[in-house]
Amino acid sequence: MDLSALRVEEVQNVINAMQKILECPICLELIKEPVSTKCDHIFCKFCMLKLLNQKKGPSQCPLCKNDITKRSLQESTRFSQLVEELLKIICAFQLDTGLEYANSYNFAKKENNSPEHLKDEVSIIQSMGYRNRAKRLLQSEPENPSLQETSLSVQLSNLGTVRTLRTKQRIQPQKTSVYIELGSDSSEDTVNKATYCSVGDQELLQITPQGTRDEISLDSAKKAACEFSETDVTNTEHHQPSNNDLNTTEKRAAERHPEKYQGSSVSNLHVEPCGTNTHASSLQHENSSLLLTKDRMNVEKAEFCNKSKQPGLARSQHNRWAGSKETCNDRRTPSTEKKVDLNADPLCERKEWNKQKLPCSENPRDTEDVPWITLNSSIQKVNEWFSRSDELLGSDDSHDGESESNAKVADVLDVLNEVDEYSGSSEKIDLLASDPHEALICKSERVHSKSVESNIEDKIFGKTYRKKASLPNLSHVTENLIIGAFVTEPQIIQERPLTNKLKRKRRPTSGL
């Protein structure tokens, strides 16, 4: 017993010596996670971090007073192994002897410093981030199933929210409404489509400006004509009531908005009720001829604005009016007729031209339509002016008669200019590109209106002035400009410049 007691005391002394060697000089306990400095002193990692955080910048070693920084600290694995072995020896000594260790306080702390507990403390002390800490805590505590279930439920809930957000973003663009038309193969669909197009076009005519009305009406008319041609002859009974509906809707729209509806009346003529396609083609032919005449008058307007600064050229074209007008009339009417003589009366030419125009518009179905009313009214106005011209010709002399006839021709041009508003800008460009020769010939008609105004002003003063002067240069210039014009009389060319000069002198006297 005595020997055993001596041996136990010796073992205890050895353990105490080893414990003092492996103590931390700051906390005076076994080193936890030993860290060595540049001066080869060993301290606990937790104690050194606490010391360095007390001051900004480098701190001093507690043993040798040298500078220490966080970067200079290094882990010493050898001392950590020695500490672990010492703890194992102490545990074995207690089991063999059955005696508690003399320094129970220190031993209890040593026992608490088992490797499992050290790992837990290291995970908390090290600044490795929240995710690494959570992982280490889960690994160190596998015995708690409640914690695992809560963490898994949190992760699953987070994943569910992310997935639901993604699915919502994908589903939202798919919620856009999609309209699908289910059509049938019955023959009544074509008639319904035609009526739908006509009503939609009328609404567009009321909303859209004048520049786009003609294009819309032309497209709708083409669509309706194609649909009529596709149907068989057996379905004509269905077409006639639908066309009557079209007429009623167009008349109502014309009564409500007459000014807006006139812009599309000329282009919509071939959508009118037709028994066969031949009647629609004839109407299209007549409309094309009318559009040609209207576009020519538009060309004359532009030329008149350009040549208004040259009064000499405008005056020299006075007698070329009849010849150029004959050529335009021959090209406007498709019928083959002989040219009228140069010395014939211009009023007779106008009456013949009106007689040619009237039969074209005397179809029984055309008179029933609303768009032809505008053309009939313009023709009636022309006839009224010609009836007035006959009365004026009986009273005035030959020279005054010529000037009045020219004035009436200008009035006719004004009437025809009203129809110019109905034609589109695209048709003007096509006419100029296809028929430049006709445009040059028809330019002379509009330029002549300037000389007509001068004659009217001469009649106000009650006299006409003449001068025997020749202007050969002007006649040559005008002959080169206009290709299809005829030779003019030299006496009238000489008379016109004198009248304008005298007018300039006598205007201030009349004002006084």
Rank of each mutant, 00 (worst) to 15 (best):
L51S: 10
L63E: 15
E9A: 12
Y130W: 12
I125L: 13
A17W: 07
G183V: 05
N132P: 09
R133G: 08
L156E: 00
Q148Y: 14
I42P: 03
V122W: 01
V191M: 05
C39I: 00
L63C: 03
C39S: 00
F43H: 00
R163D: 12
S127C: 15
E84W: 00
Q169E: 05
P145T: 14
N103A: 10
Y105F: 05
L165W: 02
L22I: 00
A92F: 01
L137Y: 04
P58S: 04
E143M: 03
N144E: 10
N103E: 05
H41T: 00
V14S: 09
R133T: 03
I90W: 01
K56L: 13
C61V: 00
E111D: 13
R7K: 12
C27D: 00
I89G: 02
E111F: 07
C39V: 00
R78I: 13
D67S: 14
L49V: 00
N16E: 14
Q139D: 03
R163T: 08
V178H: 03
L147N: 04
V178L: 08
Q210A: 07
G183D: 15
T164V: 14
P145H: 08
T69V: 07
L165Q: 12
N53K: 10
E188C: 06
S72L: 11
K175N: 04
R131W: 13
Y105S: 10
I171D: 13
E10C: 05
K38R: 15
L30R: 04
T150V: 04
A108I: 14
I15K: 00
N113F: 02
L28V: 11
K20F: 00
V162N: 08
A5S: 07
L99A: 08
Q169M: 02
S186F: 07
P142V: 08
I68C: 13
L137G: 09
E111L: 07
E29M: 11
E29G: 10
L147S: 06
T176L: 13
E84S: 03
L182G: 05
R163E: 05
S177F: 09
F43L: 00
S123N: 15
G160C: 01
K32M: 02
V162L: 05
K65D: 13
H41P: 00
C39H: 00
